[in-house]
C-alpha cells in the first residue's frame, strides 16, 4: 500500500468543503436533518437516563409500609415478616418498632423544638405504628404485592409510596417507542438527503471527474472529496445538537433546582459530564457513520470509476 501525501489529503478535504459550499441548500438541509436527528437522540437519552435514575432512586426508597391490627403479638408480626420475605419481588424487609417510628417522627417534626416532644415521653402517640418497611426489586410489582399484603391476617393497613411506578414505566415505554421511531425516520431522511447532496455534487462535478479519470486519478482520489463531504455534514450535524443539548441540560438543571427546591429530594439530575460522556461519542459515531454510509452508498451507485 502506498502512503497518501499530506498535500493530497488537504486538497481533497478542501474539495469536500468546496462541495458543501457549492451545494449550500442541500448541504444545509442535510445538516439540519442530522441536527434534528441527533438532538432528539440526545434529548431522549438525557431524559431517559434521568428518568430511570429517578425510578431507581424511588425503588431504593420505601415503597410499601405495612401496619398491624391493634393488640397483635410480636410473634404474629414475626410470622407476617417471614411470609413477606419469601416473595420474589421483595428485596428487603425492615421492622420498625413503635419507639423507632416515634423517634424518627420526632426528629422530623420537632426539629429545633425538641422540648415540645418531651411531653409525650411516656405516652407514645404512635404506639400502634409499628410497621414493616418493604423494599422492592421491581417497582412495577408494587400493586400486586399490596393486594397480597392486604389479604394477610393481622394487617390493618398498607401504605404505598406516591410514585406510581407502574404508570411511569408504561408511559416510559410509549415515549421510548415514539422517540425511537422518530429517530429511525430521521436517520433515514438524513441518509436520503446526504445521498441527494452527494448525487448533486457528482452531477455538478461530472466534467471535472471525467477529466480527472483521463489524467490518471485513482478511484480513491476521485471519491475522497465526496466522502469528506458526507462525513463533514455528519460531523457538523452532530456537533450543533451536542452544543445545544449541553446548554439546554445545564439550564434546565439550574432552573428546576432553583424553582422547585421542594422537589430536589426526588429530582436529582445526573451530572452533566456523566450524560455527555455517553452522548458525545454516541452522537459523533452516529453522525460520522450516517455521513459516511450516505456518501459511500451514493458513490457506489452514481460514480462508476
Amino acid at each position: 500500500m502506498t502512503s497518501v501525501r499530506f498535500s493530497t489529503i488537504t486538497y481533497n478535504i478542501g474539495q469536500g468543503f468546496k462541495n458543501i459550499w457549492r451545494n449550500k441548500l442541500f448541504s444545509l438541509a442535510s445538516i439540519a436533518t442530522m441536527t434534528a436527528c441527533i438532538f432528539l437522540l440526545g434529548l431522549f437519552y438525557s431524559i431517559g437516563a434521568n428518568f430511570s435514575e429517578m425510578v431507581h432512586t424511588a425503588e431504593e426508597g420505601v415503597a410499601v409500609t405495612v401496619f398491624f391490627d391493634a393488640g397483635i403479638t410480636q410473634e404474629q408480626i414475626d410470622n407476617i415478616g417471614n411470609e413477606i420475605k419469601k416473595r420474589g419481588e421483595v428485596r428487603d424487609v425492615k421492622f420498625v418498632s413503635a419507639e423507632e417510628a416515634w423517634d424518627s417522627f420526632k426528629v422530623e417534626y420537632f426539629k429545633g423544638r425538641e422540648e415540645l416532644a418531651e411531653g409525650f415521653v411516656n405516652d407514645n402517640p404512635l404506639a400502634n405504628q409499628a410497621n414493616y418497611e418493604i423494599y422492592l426489586n421491581d417497582v412495577s410489582m408494587q400493586s400486586s404485592l399490596v393486594t397480597y399484603l392486604e389479604s394477610l391476617d393481622g394487617v390493618r393497613q398498607v401504605n404505598q409510596s406516591e410514585v406510581v411506578a407502574e404508570t411511569l414505566s408504561d408511559v416510559n415505554k410509549l415515549i421510548s417507542l415514539i422517540f425511537v421511531s422518530f429517530i429511525i425516520i430521521l436517520i433515514a431522511i438524513a441518509i436520503f438527503l446526504i445521498s441527494n447532496t452527494i448525487t448533486t455534487g457528482i452531477a455538478v462535478r461530472k466534467e471535472e471527474i471525467a477529466i480527472m479519470k483521463l489524467i490518471g486519478a485513482k478511484d480513491s482520489f476521485v471519491r475522497a472529496p465526496f466522502i469528506v463531504e458526507g462525513i463533514a455534514i455528519g460531523l457538523i450535524g452532530s456537533i450543533i445538537p451536542l452544543v445545544i443539548l449541553l446548554f439546554m441540560y445545564k439550564s434546565v438543571m439550574v432552573y428546576v433546582t432553583e424553582k422547585f427546591i421542594f422537589l430536589t429530594n426526588f429530582l436529582t439530575f445526573i451530572p452533566v459530564h456523566e450524560i455527555f460522556e455517553v452522548l458525545v461519542p454516541l452522537a459523533l459515531i452516529l453522525g460520522i457513520g450516517i455521513g459516511y454510509i450516505g456518501s459511500r452508498m451514493t458513490l457506489k451507485k452514481h460514480l462508476k470509476v
Binding site: 501525501r5 498535500s7 493530497t8 486538497y11 477529466i211 489524467i215 490518471g216 486519478a217 485513482k218 482520489f221
Partner: peptide, 20 residues
C-alpha cells in the same frame, strides 16, 4: 475541457494534484 472555475495555473497544477 478546462475547469472553468480555476485559473490557468490551477488548471495545469490540477493534473499534477490528481496524480498526487
Amino acid at each position: 475541457r478546462l475547469l472553468q472555475d480555476r485559473n490557468v495555473y490551477e488548471n495545469v497544477a490540477f493534473a499534477m494534484k490528481v496524480v498526487e
